[in-house]
């Protein structure tokens, strides 16, 4: 039996519980919608325009930097698992790997891409 089957069951039960709670609330709760109640809440002021606002490009930059580091660290996990049984060679190898990426971080930093404004 695959251990992921248990995880799958966890996913299913983990969905059933919130669905059940929200379902019970849906059955018990009153339902009297009206246009004022349904309007979006913007501190009591009439909503202007749509909910879609244009975002800063900076969010995208941070997501990109994150993506690179995410992939990198995931690569390092097998290395870390094995590290206890390996010699200095593997350690140096991992350090070189990290340093190359730190160089990327430094480059991003020096270019001013890590500034929010």
């Amino acid at each position: 039996m695959n251990e992921w089957l248990y995880i799958g069951l966890f996913f299913i039960v983990g969905l059933i519980i919130p669905v059940g709670a929200i379902g019970v609330a849906w059955i018990l709760g009153p339902k009297k919608p009206n246009p004022i109640k349904q309007s979006t809440y913007e501190c009591g002021i009439e909503p202007v325009g749509e909910g879609w606002v244009q975002f800063k490009a900076q969010y995208y930059i941070f997501a990109l930097v994150f993506l690179v580091f995410d992939v990198e660290t995931v690569f390092l996990f097998p290395w870390a698992v094995k590290l206890g049984q390996l010699g200095m060679f593997a350690v140096v190898e991992g350090i070189v790997f990290i340093l190359v990426l730190i160089a990327g971080l430094v480059y991003t930093w020096r270019k001013g891409m890590l500034e929010w404004v």
Partner: peptide, 24 residues
């Protein structure tokens, strides 16, 4: 449980309802 559950105008119903379940 007995509060009224309001959905704002223009909300994307399916995604709106799925989000709290996924969060939990």
């Amino acid at each position: 449980l007995i509060k009224e559950d309001t959905t704002p105008d223009g909300a994307d119903k399916v995604v709106y309802n799925l989000a709290p379940m996924l969060s939990m």
